[in-house]
Amino acid sequence: MRAKLMGYFLLGLIRVLTGAQARWWGCPPKAEQRIYFANHQSHADLVMIWAALPKELRHNTRAVAARDYWTKTPFKHWITRAVFNVIYVSRERNAQEDPLEPLIDALHAGDSLILFPEGTRGHMEEPQAFKAGLYNLALQFPQVELIPAWIANVQRVMPKGEVVPVPVPVLCSVTFGAPMHLQSGEDRHDFLQRARLAVMALRDV
């Protein structure tokens, strides 16, 4: 119950602070298994996409988050685990551990994912190069829709280094694009570049 109440509180807070708008430009919100992938410039990105999804989709959609940051304090650990039901991944290279394993398990269980393919927050207007994880998941789960998304202006509300949102007169939005899939014979470099361009194309929609 406490986690549910916190979820409602955060949902209202993010909408008040950011004027968050969900723009389903390339696809409607549907209860289908999907991987949502987006640009990443703020810790608030996770909450922005979660808040943009309709209530019936939030339950089965799990964000992917860095274990070292989001388990650093008991509160961060609780809120990401109990409220957002995130999937923790390790950013440390460990030959004994496949960082995609918990994502693969979640997809086998029927969950949808929220993924930030840059792997870390950027500070430029354009996303950094995408890492291979999105490609590997697309290769293993060709039936799952890949939905690009562009998160606009949230870095102005919560700039890098800030832990408390900064009230500014700007509207934030999440624009969802058309579904895409890995094409037959498409190599990793070409796919990741196409996925990155699909995200960037939503900036001016």
Rank of each mutant, 00 (worst) to 15 (best):
S112W: 07
R156K: 14
R156V: 09
F130C: 04
L113C: 03
F191R: 09
L115V: 13
G133E: 09
L139Q: 14
E145G: 06
V166S: 09
E162W: 15
R188Y: 01
F176K: 07
V164N: 00
L171C: 13
L103W: 00
P127M: 14
Q143F: 07
S184R: 13
I104E: 11
G122Q: 05
F141Q: 09
M124Y: 05
H123L: 04
E162N: 13
K131C: 04
V174P: 00
C172V: 15
G110F: 02
T175M: 06
A106W: 03
D105A: 15
L134Y: 06
V170A: 09
L107S: 06
D105W: 03
H189S: 12
A106I: 09
I104S: 02
A106S: 12
H189M: 06
Q143V: 06
I147N: 04
P167N: 10
L103P: 00
V174M: 01
F176S: 04
V154T: 12
Y135W: 11
F191G: 05
I151N: 02
V174L: 00
N153F: 01
A132S: 15
K160W: 01
H108E: 15
V144K: 07
P142N: 10
L113F: 06
C172D: 07
L171M: 13
F191N: 07
V144E: 09
E162R: 12
L182N: 14
P117Q: 08
A109R: 14
V168W: 03
E126A: 10
I104W: 01
G122A: 05
G185D: 10
V157R: 02
L115Y: 09
F130A: 08
R121I: 01
S112I: 05
Q143H: 12
R188L: 05
A132T: 15
V157F: 00
L134I: 15
V154W: 01
M180G: 08
V168R: 14
G122R: 03
G110P: 04
E126N: 10
